[in-house]
Amino acid sequence: MFSAVYVETEARDHPRARAILERYRDLPQIECERYGQIFNRKAQNFRLQKEYPALILARKHGRKVLPAPGGYGFDAGQSHYFSHMLNCIYDCRYCFLQGMYRSAHCVLFVNYEDFADSIRQTIAAGPGNQVFYSGYDCDSLALEPVSGFAEFFVPFFAEHPAAVMELRTKSTQVAGLLQIDAAPNCVIAMSFTTEAAARRWERNVPSIEKRLAALGRLQDAGWPVALRFEPLLPEADSNAYENLFKLIFSRLRSDRLHSVSTGLFRMPADFFRNTLKLYPDEPLFARETQTENGVVSLQQPNREAWLAELEAALFRHIDPASYYRCAE
């Protein structure tokens, strides 16, 4: 999975870093002062680097909990996101991370305890129920056997029932979750695109079948499970989404879903520019686009009608009250 491990001098002795370094003792281990020395360097090529990504172990400084962008997520109240990791071991062509970061290496911040402190303070300061999204800058569960992220944060949130954590993922690494009691305030949100889109644009991502099997087991164990249909992309096969919905709802209990959302393909304009530079040969990015309020999306005639049709197909399976469109 990784070709080397970089480790910040000050993170090196953290027990989590020590355990990971031990796990990867056969890989080159390279010390650095700050993760940015490697991660933020100029003239890196994300696309080439994706062939041999490295893991960077670091300590997160500064603000650890940030306000979630407007329109992101299921709750209109106060919501936040926190990133214990930057980048992802999967390689989805439509992912905005490739336009956001210069490097394809994965940064793992090992000081979870400091994140937990910040979350605790945010909960104490904020009014009412608050939502904390993880998996905004990474996949929450993909690296679970190495990172122990859920293993740490699920029990933490279980102790803070007034707050909700969403783990956004495409991973099937749920063995750890299945070994502990389901936490009603920890939502496992699985992202799906259609079969054709997954085959074409999602490299190294577990198949839809495998993801559904993992979600099914989580549902059976009482975990709140959510579905995220993102990014929505127009396809030649007009039944592609309907078929996807049929498959999913033949495997999952729709009455027990926490929430279901959709989101169009969209990217901040500067990330899109960077992505286009990286993949000038990718048909997805060569299509006609439109930019609104600094966000690029694909030009699509009759987009609203298409969305309405797609939502109608979805509502044949779910309660519309559990549905939202992600507008971020």
Partner: peptide, 26 residues
Amino acid sequence: IRRIMHRESGELYWPPVTDLKLPGCE
């Protein structure tokens, strides 16, 4: 080489990592 330090300037450089399984050092 995995990391280069220019002693005079203190500048650091980070050549890429690979899976070639060649011994490496600073």
